[in-house]
Computed example of a mutant assay.
Amino acid sequence: MLIKIPNMDDQILEQLKAATCRNTGSRAVESAAIGYLELRATVAKQHHENKRLMQRLEAAEATIQRARAAASELLERTAELI
């Protein structure tokens, strides 16, 4: 399959060739496109994992806040007894 990309900046093409270790511009663009698709999937997974971890963190922070409040109340009640 022949794909023409008119007006592609030569400097960008050389950077793609270097980044993908390909000798031809068309192979470099192909490798970059495949890499993009793989990275896009990775980013989507990381966003999902980040959301899950943020929810766990928020739950843990809420638990810590409740524990602090309970400890503070216990300290106050203990001080009243003394």
Rank of each mutant, 00 (worst) to 15 (best):
A69H: 14
T42S: 12
A60C: 13
N50Q: 11
C21T: 09
A28G: 01
G25S: 04
T24C: 11
V29R: 00
L75G: 00
N50V: 05
L2C: 07
A44T: 10
A18W: 01
A71N: 06
Q65M: 05
Q46D: 05
L2V: 11
R52F: 13
V29C: 01
R40A: 11
E80P: 02
N7Q: 05
S26C: 03
M54A: 12
A28D: 02
C21R: 12
L16V: 02
A69M: 14
L39C: 04
T42L: 13
K51M: 10
T24F: 10
V43G: 01
Q65P: 00
L53Q: 14
E14T: 10
I34K: 10
A33S: 15
L2T: 11
A71C: 05
N7K: 04
T63A: 13
E58S: 12
L81C: 03
L13T: 02
S26T: 03
A79I: 05
T42K: 12
M8K: 06
L74G: 08
I34W: 08
T42W: 09
N7P: 01
A59R: 10
N50R: 08
A71L: 07
E80A: 15
Q55R: 09
E61F: 04
E58P: 02
A19S: 11
A44Q: 11
T24P: 04
A44D: 11
R40K: 11
L2E: 11
M1T: 06
L2A: 12
A18F: 03
A70G: 03
A18H: 04
K17Y: 13
M54R: 13
Q46G: 00
A32E: 01
I82K: 10
S26H: 02
R22A: 09
S26P: 00
E58V: 07
S26Y: 00
Q46R: 08
E76G: 04
A19N: 08
L37W: 09
A70V: 07
E58N: 12
A60L: 14
Q65E: 09
Q11W: 14
S31L: 02
E38R: 15
M8C: 11
I3G: 05
